[in-house]
Design a protein around this nucleic acid. Sequence first.
DNA 1: TCTAGTTTTCGTCTGATAGGCAAAAACTCG
DNA 2: CGAGTTTTTGCCTATCAGACGAAAACTAGA
Lengths: 245, 245
Amino acid sequence: MNIDEVGEKLVSGLQERSSGSGPKAAHEVLAVVFQIRQDRLCVLVWRRGRPPCEGLWALPGGRLGAAEGLGESIRRQLAQKVDVRDLSHLEQLETRGDPDRDPFGRTLATAYLGLVPAGIDPVVPVDTEWRPVPELPPMAFDHAAMVGSARRRLRAKLSYTNIGFALAPPEFTMSELSRYYRAALGHDVAATNLRRVLLRRGQIEETGQSVPSGRSGGRPAALFRFRARSLEITDAFAVLRPPSG
Amino acid sequence: MNIDEVGEKLVSGLQERSSGSGPKAAHEVLAVVFQIRQDRLCVLVWRRGRPPCEGLWALPGGRLGAAEGLGESIRRQLAQKVDVRDLSHLEQLETRGDPDRDPFGRTLATAYLGLVPAGIDPVVPVDTEWRPVPELPPMAFDHAAMVGSARRRLRAKLSYTNIGFALAPPEFTMSELSRYYRAALGHDVAATNLRRVLLRRGQIEETGQSVPSGRSGGRPAALFRFRARSLEITDAFAVLRPPSG
DNA sequence: TCTAGTTTTCGTCTGATAGGCAAAAACTCG
DNA sequence: CGAGTTTTTGCCTATCAGACGAAAACTAGA
């Protein structure tokens, strides 16, 4: 490309920009809300009762309000499905805007990742269920892809952040926590290693209390809690970090 | 919240959804394009010649076309500022939608992170410049925040992915590469350690050739290249990884 | 040609971290 | 009090990052 071509394209670009009446599209916000239930990673979905995609399962969410911010909107929409006070974490995930992602008109969608700690059972509407992620039901639109993105994001952040705080209840034993990690990561996590890693990173601490272990006896398990309840990056993972001096 | 309240909220949610005539907002795509020039991390910006934000600097981008995908659109928009064939990497960054982010009407913006390898000098329009990120000029709208997000994303990915391939030219010496990393990370990176780290991770390999070093002699530097030219995650950083067995 | 200077490369050391494994601790139940 | 169960602790190894200095390989000048 030579400079003249660039100049022409620039002019047309400015004209388009200043014309001011570009196309407007509907925008919706959706949430992939995970909770670990019975040692399985589950996602909150609801069954669509009318077209389009009738009978398929969809993520909670809906149209962005006229004067709403994105985060504001997803909290309002989620309140229709769960008590948002149960949400331990919420972050923006991705925006999808394929022209044909919604057969009934151009719709952009911004997806969020939400987490609810294990151990509680929020009231949900009759059309809404927690479904295990490995056996996802037939999903509407591109919602299955969003669940996949959310799962990858969660897996990655379990490695280099303290996001476990949002999966676990306020207090937990190490064997419980290792089961949460196993469900979210999809593979075994030894409780003994997890304990050492998270303690060394300063993510968790002992509460000083303990609870009797399972039905058939065993040493009482110490209770732990996460030191922080908001997202922090483990800087041990910032490789190529600044020189120590 | 009890079950009845949930039910009511659900109904109102369905009505809102099926009403079909939600508010429509303008949507634009923007790109934070970085290139390392003279050992400094620079961002591609252009100076606005008319209101709003006249005289301030803005990220390249513009309105989403009626039948365009988001990635498709940002490539089209960027073509007005640079030769998109120079782009070595492009990924979605975040979507901002504060109701008052654009004083002239509700506009959502999806930002992308783009990278151009060092060593080339793309032709840009007269109103467009590469500006060093540490001395960012006064930016329009929330574009300064987007540059900040992009910089954090780049810094993080330099640690746990091979994204260096998008900053460096096809072949480079280790001292050159360490200067690219220093510019992007903001702190010194020892060439000797960088070499070992990237070789061990399998990200780079020797080309077999070497070039005479600087003006005043010195041992000739070996030339390296990145083995892959698309984003790969360094699994050494997947802590809590599956058991070795 | 030899020497001084410069730059890159290589080898070694240290410290931090992850993961595996087995022994010890602490409890329940019979 | 002993057997069984579960958690906790300690030890070992392997891997990795970072620092440092010595060696290698070149240029320029005497």
